[in-house]
Amino acid sequence: MLARLDRWAAGLTSLAALLGTLGLLTEVVIILVDVVGRYFGAPLRGAQDITTMTMVIVVFGGMSLCDRLGGHIAVDLFEPAMPAWLRRAGDIATALLGAVIFFGIAWTVMESAALSRMLNLSTNIIQLPKAWFQTVLAVFSVITGLGMTLRALSLLAGSPRPAEPRSE
């Protein structure tokens, strides 16, 4: 059961990272087009609107993958001195706290998205609705929170500690 859920979560994580990666390459293209265009007196209309909103996808798109790869930084100074049970408790607490934080971000940002719709908020030049990008941020946060919940559950069910951080 947990294994199947984890495959689902892995799929969602990959999808989010894929969108983030596409977003990053889009940023490069948009800024280059704007810079070259401006040199010839025709900058890209709303370039800053597009790049700032795409940035949301880049930043939160990679969040779940980052967590899966153990990319969130912790102070490991005292780890060697810790008994095994304390390290395990720390791992579970981290996963649970992370899940609470990311579900919390998703919930509060969705509340803000409702407010954005009420206030009719959009970007200044080409009117990209703010609520769209807040929703994207919330969805990516939910995916991240799900991954953490699953890790907490599998740790509680007795699975071994996660592997060492990735190497590049």
Partner: peptide, 23 residues
């Protein structure tokens, strides 16, 4: 800024309509 006033982060805020002109 406007959102901060609505959400109660602060009671009173100063802001520019031009930063969120769609509102």
């Amino acid at each position: 800024q406007y959102v901060r006033a609505v959400q109660g982060v602060a009671d009173v805020v100063w802001g520019l309509p031009g930063y969120t002109s769609s509102q």
